[in-house]
């Protein structure tokens, strides 16, 4: 099994940290992982993206142009990455701020209203965890227990009180993801 993912959105949405949590979860279930961010001036206020690979085998190229899954969180990223999802792959997106919805019919398109749901929970910082939950429902590659283990390992102790909130957000994402293609 090899899962090649692009997560793309605005800087500040938690794109990079969501990728990091995914990668950590992969390690918790004894898989090989890589996390390759876009870095540089484009991150300041502009778009941010990260390529995450989770695999049972040694990861070859951390640099990819085609992905099994695209998690797309703004219009610029939709324009840039809709075409990069492999045929038969998954495109998961948040409709907030999207003016042109995905048009491809050779992939599975899913929608999650992460911005709305996290605002309703009263904490927009957990937006990325709602998205992560949606992804975990669509592609059950990393298990919730391993995500929690990964959070415990990667977060400083003083933030561990926030783990239940993150878990709630993941479950909310799992419950609310909607399939858009037939």
């Amino acid at each position: 099994m090899t899962e090649e993912i692009i997560i793309a959105g605005f800087g500040g949405q938690g794109v990079l940290s969501m990728g990091k949590i995914l990668a950590y979860s992969g390690i918790m279930q004894d898989q090989e992982v890589s996390w390759m961010p876009s870095y540089g001036p484009e991150m300041r206020g502009g778009t941010a993206n990260v390529t995450v690979i989770i695999s049972d085998e040694r990861v070859s190229s951390p640099i990819l142009t085609r992905f099994d899954t695209g998690i797309i969180l703004n219009q610029q990223s939709m324009d840039k990455f809709e075409g990069s999802v492999k045929p038969g792959g998954v495109l998961l997106y948040d409709p907030n701020g999207i003016t042109r919805h995905p048009e491809r019919t050779d992939i599975d398109v899913y929608q999650i209203e992460g911005a709305r749901l996290s605002a309703e929970m009263g904490n927009t910082k957990i937006f990325n965890m709602v998205i992560l939950g949606a992804y975990m429902k669509v592609k059950p590659i990393v298990l919730l227990e391993n995500v929690i283990k990964g959070l415990k390992k990667s977060l400083p102790e003083r933030y561990h009180t926030l783990i239940p909130l993150n878990e709630d957000a993941i479950r909310l994402g799992m419950k609310n993801v909607v399939r858009k293609t037939a």
């Binding site: 990668a23 992982v33 890589s34 996390w35 390759m36 961010p37 870095y39 951390p62 640099i63």
Partner: peptide, 10 residues
Amino acid sequence: DGVIGQMMEK
């Protein structure tokens, strides 16, 4: 190089 320096792996 910038790839190996910036990427995260196990």
